[in-house]
């Protein structure tokens, strides 16, 4: 039966270990899923970056040096909107809320230039909506991303 809905829906669920290598593999699968959903290069790049930053934060901060944590990721796209849900069993966000994501200052000497601290700034700039909960020892982060421009038809 042909898909007659104006905004077809695609979904992907996966589970990954908290390592940069597993993040790479997960991002690769999300990139393919978004391509199948008709997202263009720019929109895929935006979603991939937001997801990379969120997952890197879980590996580096929520799980920290305990490198064997599990992360569950679900991606649901409806037309040009993607809903990402990331769950992990790592440490709670400081203050039980998302970082403000103020950009690090650059008006400093060369040797003082920041080498990190950009992650939440990028996530907040590129996402449409964020929601964070910590219940029963688990973090749940919801991110909505909207593809800008026209979705490609191929």
């Amino acid at each position: 039966m042909p898909d007659t809905s104006p905004q077809s829906s695609h979904s992907l669920e996966l589970s990954l270990g908290s390592s940069p290598q597993e993040i790479r593999a997960a991002l690769d699968r999300v990139r393919r899923a978004l391509r199948d959903a008709g997202w263009d290069d720019e929109a895929r790049g935006t979603a991939e970056l937001v997801l990379a930053e969120a997952l890197n934060n879980i590996v580096e901060h929520a799980y920290g040096s305990a490198g064997d944590g599990q992360i569950r990721l679900s991606v649901v796209t409806r037309g040009r909107t993607a809903e990402l849900v990331i769950c992990d069993g790592g440490g709670v966000m400081p203050g039980r809320r998302l970082p403000e994501g103020a950009p690090p200052r650059l008006d400093v000497g060369t040797q003082e230039l920041p080498e990190g601290g950009f992650g939440w700034h990028l996530i907040r700039r590129l996402s449409d909506h964020l929601n964070y909960r910590h219940d029963d020892g688990r973090n749940r982060l919801e991110i909505r991303i909207r593809a800008e421009g026209e979705a490609s038809q191929d």
Binding site: A52, E53, N56, P114, E115, G116
Partner: peptide
């Protein structure tokens, strides 16, 4: 593709 870790590495 570059993420903020890669950006930090260039800095």
């Amino acid at each position: 593709f570059i993420d903020s870790s890669g950006l930090g590495a260039i800095v």
